[in-house]
Design a protein around this nucleic acid. Structure first.
Lengths: 363, 363
DNA sequence: GTTAGCACTCAGGTGTTGAGAGTGCTAACA
DNA sequence: TGTTAGCACTCTCAACACCTGAGTGCTAAC
């Protein structure tokens, strides 16, 4: 359990095995290990140490005459103690900065770009959770006429989120009713959080107090609720799901591949898993995950907008992944997003370059 | 070429081969054919006919001692002349109607449901193109303040489409400037189509005429253009991409599967292909498609909203698919969407059921 | 024109075999 | 006492041969 169980040499051997296995995907044997990493020790000695490591649960054996493979426990140790998380060279950093800068005025595109970068640079499947809005407060509700029996519901929240949805009415409306409806709803829900509004008994308040609106309300309220729900549901953007085909652990095994893709297709489930992870950089390996991801690893990190923790991004792939590199990439990207969307006060250095001095506006 | 080249018996045999192959996926031989379809003819005779059919290009041979497989030309003949497009039983129809009814007030969810239905019932990968907006005209443009350096741009079109996007400004704004900007832009672009606005020289008009807005404009206009572009880009919803794993043509062949999934991952390309298809139900088989889809078939159909052709839906899968069934499903779904979103005047029969008479509103 | 018979072909499954990589154990060594 | 060489043993994997079943094409008879 305790890494202190392992003497220096065991640690060194374990690290070498993990490094070799991560880069090749093949079980590593004592002989080849003693060749590739010159550690002044014979294969036989390595075998003895390996045998110990296996007994301690750090290594496993696919079959008698195969080399050793790191266990989830070994990866855990590696991630906690051994790996190098500063594996990004300047070129990689530059690439990330450039791509994220391209769209630095718009959160949505930035986030899409982040997902692309993430899957490109790790060669894994990446995902980004769009900003969460649980506690965002409603600002106003508006109905726009479209045609004789269609209106658009528009919900605007204080944090700038706008959500809209076309609604077909079962009975005609009047302009006045529509405006009244907008006013009443805005009045009722302004400043309240989405979840608070959803908990209210909305239909009733209309049938009781505002009879002239009750027919319109009957059409509109269900859509209103659904739209609120949609605002709550964090939107998951994914990228690079076909990357797994280039990984040996999948390319031989159709069933595994299918399982993986089916798992990804269940976005709700995946969103759930991601939402419920710890803050900060979190790495879960193999059986630390739930059953259906028990031979996958998940690495996630948060990003902030205006200093507030709003979203999460990460990758999913086989337990054999380049933890060091991947973690560095994720960290760098999430930090970069957070910085880009820092409060204005804190980053007037770079931003002002674009601004050629003709500023007239002033709040 | 001409199906009239084929006498009654050849047609019958061809149809039988296609039917068998579609349902099993195995090359069909003369002997097994004479067993399964009793057509009072010996295997030897069938062999002779098959040989003729092969010479005419309707059948191929994976190798000497395998059975026959229909060619793309055979499928084309089958689709044009032989297949039965009324293969939906009442249960299927019911299922479609029910699911689409669930969300009949909201176009967006209806369309998502349509994609789900389509992939479920065909066991293929389905896609639905959201309503197209090339010619929709702008109604107004609005900017909502969010925080000291973020605003939300909101574009509303006459057809009820609303698009919004958060913009971070490089310099502060004033409420007045924001409102002025909304007014000016609304005034300039109201009633113009999206494509027309995109063709205009927007930045210039601000730097010349409205100096006080030029700094704000510099921040806002690029995002405005990007947003318009996004409104133009038809949004593609896909479903059931992992269905292909259950098909024998893929489940043996990793490379083919990978190719298929990579093709699906390039949404822009796929959208392009779908947008450029003919109106109505269109079936393209194998090499009738572009190179990268040359052993796939594509079936698409349009749906209308308020009588206007707005979107398209369909499936993609191996050339061996149940053309009759699939076509029936697609047709039924697209008709159903179109009906559900018919102009109110034409479908007051069903709709009124939900409406319990307390209608007060009246246009 | 249709059919039975027959020689021929080929993919795919099964069994065998040998090479290669690896382990574990033992005995000798420093 | 820890380290190492040597060796027997194990297991996978690729190659090879072989067989079977399904199918074809051709020919000759009906």
């Amino acid at each position: 359990m305790n890494p202190n169980d392992l003497n220096e040499r065991k640690l060194q051997i374990l690290q070498a095995i993990i490094a070799d296995f991560i880069s090749t995907g093949e079980p590593v044997g004592s002989r080849s290990l003693s060749k590739s990493h010159d550690m002044g020790i014979s294969p036989a000695t390595i075998r003895n140490e390996m045998s110990d490591l296996e007994e301690m649960g750090y290594l496993t054996h696919p079959h008698t005459s195969a080399g050793r493979v790191p266990s989830d426990k070994a990866y855990r140790l590696y991630v906690d103690e051994l790996m190098d998380t500063s594996q990004l060279d300047e070129a990689d950093k530059q690439k990330i900065r450039t791509k994220l800068m391209e769209s630095r005025n718009e959160l949505d595109s930035t986030i899409e770009h982040a997902a692309e970068l993430l899957s490109d640079m790790t060669n894994l499947t990446s995902f980004v959770l769009m900003p969460r809005k649980d506690e965002s407060k409603l600002k106003y509700i508006n109905f726009l006429p479209v045609d004789s029996n269609t209106v658009v519901l528009m919900i605007v929240a204080e944090d700038g989120q706008v959500m809209n949805r076309a609604i077909r009415l079962t009975s005609p409306y009047t302009e006045e009713n529509l405006q009244l409806m907008s006013k009443v709803m805005t009045h009722n829900y302004m400043g309240k959080s989405i979840s608070a509004v959803m908990a209210m008994d909305i239909i009733d308040s209309f049938t009781n107090d505002m009879e002239s609106l009750s027919s319109l309300a009957a059409d509109v309220v269900p859509s209103f609720l659904k739209t609120l729900e949609k605002m709550l549901n964090a939107d998951l953007v994914m990228n690079g799901y076909s990357n797994i085909f280039s990984l040996p652990e999948f390319s031989g095994d159709m069933q595994k591949t299918q399982q993986f893709l089916r798992m990804l297709e269940d976005k709700n489930r995946l969103t759930d898993v991601i939402v419920n992870r710890d803050k900060g950089v979190m790495i879960t390996i193999g059986d630390e995950n739930s059953e259906d991801m028990k031979d996958l690893s998940l690495i996630t990190a948060d990003y902030r907008v205006n200093g507030e923790l709003v979203g999460r991004l990460g990758v999913i792939g086989p337990t054999r992944m380049k933890y060091g590199k991947v973690t560095s990439v994720i960290k760098y990207i999430s930090d970069n997003i957070s910085q880009t969307f820092e409060l204005k006060e804190n980053n007037d250095i770079k931003e002002e370059i674009e601004n050629d001095g003709s500023t007239e506006a002033d709040s």
